[in-house]
Amino acid sequence: MIRRNPWLYYGRKALAFLLSVLVLSAAAFYIARLAPGDPLVSYYGDRVERMRPDERARAEEKLGLNAPIHVQYVRWLRGALQGDFGISYKYKTDVLEVIGGRVGNTLILGGVGFVLIFGLSLGLGLFCAWNEGRWADRIVCRLGTVTSCIPEFWLSLVLILIFAVNLRWLPSGGAYSVGGTGGVGDRALHLILPMTVTVLGHLWYYAYMIRNKLLEEARAEYVLLAKAKGLSRRRVLFKHCLRNVMPAYLSIMAISVPHILGGTYIVETVFSYPGIGTLSYESARYQDYNLLMVLCILSGVVVILFNMIAQIINERIDPRMRDAEIVETTEVTGVGE
């Protein structure tokens, strides 16, 4: 048996990861600075308009904006490696502190949303596969296709109109009531609408994938043999088919994490939910460079990390992939005959 050296394997993965983050940071840094706009506005507010040129130069120097971009980048990188990501121009505090105050909200929205999507799409997919071709399956398929086509921002607005403006059952935005205590009930109430939009936006895509993969598996020969040995349809579907669909599903779900997160950014903005999404939007809008950089890298890290996790899941979970080398050698020498 030939086994890969795990240190080498993960070492190489980590190296690729760091390299990607470095490239990402440089790209984000340059693009942000080349974009039109005045970063001083976010720091000094309206005062900028009344500044004299020499005051302006001093202000730029104070924020380190006068040097060429590559020098600025090296400076930023040196600071970042020591854990100093600079201050937010808008909030005048350490960037990490600003983000720390918001990240929890996004994690609640995105995390719970992800778990819901994961579970519901599995259940819905199984339900449809079980009822393949019957009316239940057909109705769910039609409904699913329609909901997955509705843009999130539009759905958000419609839901706000119905439930917040007309019916007044639910709050229209924010994470908790103004001046409220932020108790669990209050927060949950504020989460209902954004959560609904996040889940509905992604649910059917994954449920439909599960359904079709299951049906594809159900046509495989081993299913015929499993039925021939007397297994019930339920057991064949749940044990045999589901098991073979899971690796693909898990890796797709891992890739979906950044996707769902990206969806929450839009949802957050529409619902003015104080999370990373709204913060990113603001930082880009106000040229809050330091904040933007960290948010960019944070999102990038999530994307890269989960793609890698997906890849590792794919390689680990399927026994054929796990010992791909052994397969080949066995085939050739015909071990065991």
Binding site: A220, E221, Y222, G230, P247
Partner: peptide
Amino acid sequence: ERLRGKLFSMVLQDPMTSLNPTI
């Protein structure tokens, strides 16, 4: 389902595809 396996059973052409690869 009660009869299959007990009364009659089946062997298929291609043993590679008739076994579940992940079990």
